[in-house]
């Protein structure tokens, strides 16, 4: 193999590796390939809201649903929630619905929801519910974890960590 060919081969291999890395990164963030069965199970899971009524994400089919796993003991979760309140007020009548899934105790959640003026449904989950997100990419079961579904109920994005307003707004405007 000539020297030039060898360099080309190295370059090609490096490019493939880079492409694979970027691809994996994008796949992880896009959520497009999450196992359909795990997503369907999660959407069908019924959890009590603050009034005790069992609700599932499937109840809001036809809307753009943003499911946010959070807890009162999670500072990065609390930090991003005012953005959700603002966007729910701004886009709610156009078909956007945030659904908070709190991995926490009902009394603490209710007090915090009142304090922050949360204007979207909050469901009370347990450790098993955050564990269940392992199947759709949150392999370390950390919070905050956010899933964005289009009006047909397809998972279009999953996001681990806090969301920034411009990023979220761009996605929402695209889906509404």
């Amino acid at each position: 193999m000539s020297l030039r060919l060898r360099w080309l081969a190295y370059g090609g291999a490096a490019l493939l590796a880079v492409a694979a890395g970027v691809g994996t990164q994008l796949w992880r963030q896009s959520g497009g390939e999450a196992p359909a069965a795990a997503v369907a199970a999660l959407r069908a899971t019924r959890l009590p809201d603050l009034e005790g009524t069992p609700r599932a994400l499937d109840d809001w089919r036809g809307k753009v649903v943003i499911a946010n796993y959070w807890a009162t003991w999670c500072a990065p979760c609390r930090e991003e929630m005012p953005i959700f309140v603002k966007m729910q007020a701004k886009y709610g009548d156009r078909g956007l619905i945030f659904v908070g899934i709190a991995i926490d105790q009902r009394a603490k959640v209710a007090a915090f929801a009142k304090e922050l003026g949360i204007n979207y449904p909050i469901l009370i989950g347990g450790l098993a519910d955050i564990e269940a997100t392992k199947g759709i990419g949150n392999t370390v079961s950390a919070l905050p974890f956010t899933l964005i579904f289009d009006r047909e109920g397809r998972l279009v994005k999953r996001h681990l960590g806090g969301l920034k307003e411009p990023e979220l707004e761009a996605i929402v405007q695209q889906l509404l």
Binding site: V22, T24, Q25, G137, V140, A142, G161
Partner: peptide, 23 residues
């Protein structure tokens, strides 16, 4: 190639991926 590797080293967004985190 160097330029491409540099581009690849900059993550596409500030999102945390679970691959960055320890259980």
């Amino acid at each position: 190639l160097g330029a491409l590797l540099l581009i690849a080293a900059v993550p596409p967004a500030a999102a945390v991926t679970d691959a960055d985190l320890l259980p």
